[in-house]
Every structure is written in C-alpha cells, then in structure tokens.
Design a protein around this nucleic acid. Sequence first.
DNA 1: TAGATTGTTAATCGATTAACAATC
DNA 2: TAGATTGTTAATCGATTAACAATC
Lengths: 207, 207
Amino acid sequence: MTEERLPFGVAARLSRYLQILTQAKKSGKSNISSRMLSEYSNVNPTQIRRDLSAFGKFGKRGVGYNIDYLTGRIKEILHNSGQHNLAVMGSGNLGTAIASSHAFADHGFNVAALFDAAPGKIGSVVGSLTVQPLSEVSDTVQEKGIIVGVLAVPPEAAQAAANMLMKAGVRIIFNYSEALVDAPPGVAVHSMSPAGELLYALYFYLT
Amino acid sequence: MTEERLPFGVAARLSRYLQILTQAKKSGKSNISSRMLSEYSNVNPTQIRRDLSAFGKFGKRGVGYNIDYLTGRIKEILHNSGQHNLAVMGSGNLGTAIASSHAFADHGFNVAALFDAAPGKIGSVVGSLTVQPLSEVSDTVQEKGIIVGVLAVPPEAAQAAANMLMKAGVRIIFNYSEALVDAPPGVAVHSMSPAGELLYALYFYLT
DNA sequence: TAGATTGTTAATCGATTAACAATC
DNA sequence: TAGATTGTTAATCGATTAACAATC
C-alpha cells in the first residue's frame, strides 16, 4: 500500500461509508454488510467490498463488517482524527440550523464561531455560541485555528463573506448559498446545490 | 443519439452545469467557457466539452457557450420542463430556510406545502405557506401532485416522516436529517451529508 | 491577423458488474 | 451442515487527461 493520495472517487466513497457507519452505530447496530451499506450509499456492493479490501481484510465472511472496527480503519485511511473548527457566516434560519445541528459534531467538527452582518443580530445566542460582528472574523479565525468556513448568507453577500474568510486564512469554503463563489488556487470551494441534485433525481424519475 | 437513459455520471454533471448556468446568467453573463464552467463545477474542462459535444455542437470556438442557448439544450436533454411540487416536512429553522429559499424556484421546483408535528407550529405562516398538521399530508400530496418530499425534521422523526410521504405517493425523498432512511424499491432517497462532504474536503486539505 | 476556445482523438485509469470460491 | 457474505477475478464501460487541428 503506497502512501499516495487516494483517487477522488475513493475518498468520496470512504467518507460516505464513514457517515453511514456513524449513523448505523447510533441506531444500535454492531455489524453491517456491504449490501446494507450499498442501500444507504447508492454504491454497488461489489464496489464497496473492493474499496475496503484494497486496504485490508476488514470483514468476516457470512457476517459482514464490525462497525466500530471499520469506522476506525476508515478514519485512519482518511487521516481523520481530532477536532477541527468551523466558522458559520450568517445567523438566519439556515445558519442557526447549521450551528445547532449535531451532524458535524459526530465527525469531530466543532462550530466555533457564528458571524452576522446585521447589527440587530450581534450578541444574540445560538446554543453555546454568541453571534459576532464581521469585524471579528479575522481575529477569531486565527485565534481558534478555523480552517473551514460555511456560507449561510443571502446569495448577494456570499462572495464578500467568502473573501473575509479566505483573507483570514480559511482554506475550505462550504457554500450553502446558490451564488457562485470565486476563490484563488489553494482554497477549495464546495457548493451545496440541492436544486441541482433534485434535477438529477428527477431525471431518473422521469425516464 | 439513442433515446436511452443517460449514465449516472453524465446526468449528474449536466444537472450541475444547469445549476451553474442559471447562476451565471443571474450575474449578468451571456457566455461562458468550459474553463469557467470547470472552475465552478470542479469538473475537468475537457470532460465538460465531451459531455456537451455528445449531444451537438453547442459552443463557438474562441468564444465559449451562449448561456441561454446551452441552458435550453441541457433542459431538453434532462427532460426538465414545467413545474414540480415539493413538500417540506418540519418547520424549524431548517425547514423554514428551505421553504423560503429561491434555490429551488430557479429550476421550476415549487414548495407547495409545509408540515409540522408540533401543534404550536400549525397555522403559522412562512412566506406564502401556512404550516399544516401531519394529518393533512396524504390529502395534500395527492391534491397538489407532490412527487418530492424534503425531510427537515430531527433525526429521530425522519423515518416516520418519510413513511408518511411514501404512503401518500411521494417517489423522491430528500433527506436533510443525519438519520438513515429506509425506503422500498421505487422510491429514491437522496441524503444530504454535509459532514461526509466535509470529511472528503478535509482529506485533500490534509494530504 | 492574433488570441482564444471548441470539438475530437488517443491513451490511460478508475468504476461497474457478474460470478464464484473461500469461509465465517 | 446450511446459509450468508466476503474477497477476488475478469471483462466491460465510463472518466480523465493531454494534445492539437479547426475555427470563431
């Protein structure tokens, strides 16, 4: 096994398996088969077994994969250990939903700061966070070692919010707005596009 | 050009291009090159040109693609025309954000109903919608011809909400909760997994 | 004309799938 | 033992990429 970067497809699928394993564990399961992983991930079961067996024999024939064990191995492969801090831009309904969600915490992601442009929102409390003004983005990102920024702002404010984050040192932008966001090389922009995914799902429904 | 179903990858990428074209149009552009489409979609520019040229010569050398024209052609390829109705389950922060968003409307998706289990929420108004009780799911889905259901409920309520929608005839479930959702064959479940996508982005940041 | 970008080829690599022996 | 499921092979298909002539 060479220590090279994984192909994009493999890394994407392993991340997906990890997410599913975490949820399956929560629902009380201790083992899971490639067939069940396939149902939840929409990845072919043979492909799943191939992905995993490239790194070792993680399963038991006739039984499936032990969830705790497999979770540990995939975390190793993805170098996923420890905590990472996130900043959320925008404290509207979407920003509040993201900051309150447990979805990130399950994977070691900690929402460490919440910012808003509106003076009326500054100081209001969301869970354990207090909404901060944009003037504090730079200092907070550096103090807390934030490497991921989440855009939960209106489309017309998305690029400006991204610029502030990138200037402060953020290298990964999660864009929940519809707007297109430009970034220099070295910064990864990942745009959520529910409408795009819906178009895709609908195509297979219509045909 | 045979009238067969597109490969999954092609349909996914065309959906993505359509989403980007819609946003690029909004920002005032009238043309776009495969290189720019590549920056926003993270798809290789040669791959984009190949995807498009499989259906015809849509571009102009030295200029790029006309956004309006290309939008029309991709809509044809994806059989995307007309309106489709959505139902959103859950009127918390996330459900409210989804129901208020323009992201879906840009592609002909109309949020036609919003449901909640909490008696205190019933009757409250979100945009042009009034929150309805779960007892009305079945009738509303059938009356309005709703084919897509969006889960914006707490994880422990996700499966029950999905079951109600499926029983009423919904064939596409968009799961915004972290929970795993089971569905019979014939129903497509599409789970958003921001944490999973973040794991993926982080892997390439860490390596 | 000069610059830019498409459309297309060719070569390589990864994904997909069926099938099945191994084995829990 | 019987049933289930992994690990693996082999064959095919789609994705990726560089390169470049065509042409706007």
